[in-house]
């Protein structure tokens, strides 16, 4: 037995040695990683860990009056109807935007993937322009465009007699969230388009040619050849879009700040409000907001796990198809 232990120890030793040697051999690579790791640690990893800790505090976020309360914040959250409403809105927003964005992106991608289409690069650039424009700029422009007083969109709708009186797109609680969903889709369809275009590149040109020789109509080619071949990508693109659709804080903060009457208060806006900008007369509650953040983060993590599984399946399927 003793011998075995020694052998095991020596094996372990050589293994560690080898690892150390390998790290030392690649020391320059590791050195280059350090700045990135520091930034990642300071701005992503540390806040994530810290928010778990904060979520157990009753703390304004200022001063040293933090009080450890255990799971009290979580218990309170589960009674908070604003929390539930925000949670629901976040996922409703996601369910409204993702399918729209994906179908729109797919249609545009199929059209723009046609090499014979003149100016397709120009169209691609145009559709991609909102993606690269800052959210704040888009928000300001959209607020002006959609204004019920002198916005050109209402001007058009009134002139065309499509509505009797100006629609307050961002100011009426019934439609504000859906207006924002529309703006969001308009801004981000370009990126979905790029994903789909990438997926379409996996369909070899010869397949279109073979279909052409077989007198298969374009619509049949899309339905019977292209869509089945790119379907595996839908899962990945869908999940990427879904996670992106839960990430709408800048757009909402720059347009409605969660209003009117909390009708656009999605999870992130709720967290922001409780943490930093409560109604007058209330104290900010960083601990409580952290708890909400943790719950929301965990639910996104579940989505991400689905995504990881789906990506792996797609890869495996692709590997089999080759």
């Amino acid at each position: 037995m003793a011998v075995n232990h020694e052998v095991a120890a020596s094996v372990k030793l050589t293994r560690t040695d080898r690892l150390a040697a390998r790290i030392w051999k690649s020391r320059l690579d590791y050195a280059f990683l350090i700045p990135g790791l520091l930034v990642f640690g300071a701005f992503i990893f540390w806040p994530m860990i810290a928010s778990f800790y904060y979520s157990a505090l009753n703390w304004t976020g200022f001063g040293e009056n933090a009080e450890f309360v255990g799971l009290a914040n979580y218990r309170e959250l589960l009674q908070d109807e604003f929390f539930y409403a925000a949670f629901r809105r976040s996922f409703a927003f996601m369910l409204a935007t993702v399918p729209l964005q994906m179908i729109l992106g797919l249609i545009l991608a199929i059209v723009l993937n046609n090499k014979l289409l003149r100016l397709s690069t120009l169209f691609r650039a145009m559709i991609f322009l909102p993606v690269v424009s800052p959210v704040a700029v888009i928000a300001i422009v959209m607020v002006l465009m959609l204004s019920p007083f002198n916005g050109p969109i209402n001007g058009f709708l009134l002139d065309a007699h499509l509505v009797d009186r100006a629609v307050d797109f961002l100011g009426s609680p019934q439609i504000a969230l859906w207006t924002l969903a529309g703006i969001f889709v308009w801004k981000w369809t370009g990126i979905t388009l790029i994903y789909w275009l990438a997926a379409l590149q996996t369909v070899p040109a010869e397949l279109y040619e073979a279909a052409k020789l077989d007198d298969v109509k374009t619509r049949q080619v899309i339905w019977h050849i292209v869509l089945p071949m790119i379907a595996p990508f839908a899962v990945v693109i869908g999940l990427i879009s879904a996670i992106a659709a839960l990430n709408v804080f800048p757009l909402i903060q720059a347009t409605t700040q969660g209003g009117p009457f909390f009708s656009t208060e999605v999870m992130e806006v709720y967290i922001f409000r409780t943490a930093f900008a409560p109604a007058s007369g209330q104290f900010p509650r960083l601990g409580y907001a952290s708890a909400a953040g943790v719950l929301f983060g965990l639910s996104i993590m579940v989505l991400t796990i689905f995504q990881a599984i789906a990506v792996r399946r797609t890869r495996r399927k692709e590997a089999e198809d080759v």
């Binding site: 070899p204 010869e206 397949l207 040619e209 073979a210 050849i225 089945p228 071949m229 198809d321």
Partner: peptide, 9 residues
């Protein structure tokens, strides 16, 4: 075709 161009699915 050189690459056969079979429909993989």
């Amino acid at each position: 075709f050189q690459t056969y161009a079979l429909y993989p699915h």
